[in-house]
Amino acid sequence: MKLLTLNFLTCAIKTCKTSPSSFPLHPQDAELEIVESDVNMAFLRNILPRLMWEELRGITRELGLPELPETAPAAEDLGEPSQVAKDLHRLLLETSIREGKLVCGNCGHEYAVKEGIANFLLPGHLV
């Protein structure tokens, strides 16, 4: 699962919907991999304003990745393949969680990740 996805995913459990601590989910025992892909500049510019930067910084810290700058890059910094764009692409679209789990900060529910696929099926009483 790409770190991009983790910046949008929330806990699926009904009672967590209204709790701010149900986002972001926290990776645990995560094994990361890099899956290379072409840089998509237009996509990066599109998604930039929707990122929750503070949460992204938190997650990269939890994963032991290099510290991110305090503020998100500005749209102007994402000019034709600038280093900033390449770094952002590497972080959001190429860095993936291959194995491990995602844990809700509110209810503690653990979502297993296997071969990059997170299991979000809930037992009936939690829906």
């Binding site: 995913l9 929330t10 806990c11 696929i117 299991n119 979000f120 099926l121």
Partner: peptide, 12 residues
């Protein structure tokens, strides 16, 4: 993802 659409859509 492995998920059931009938259980909702877990994104912000």
């Amino acid at each position: 993802f492995l998920a059931d659409a009938g259980q909702g859509v877990p994104f912000r």
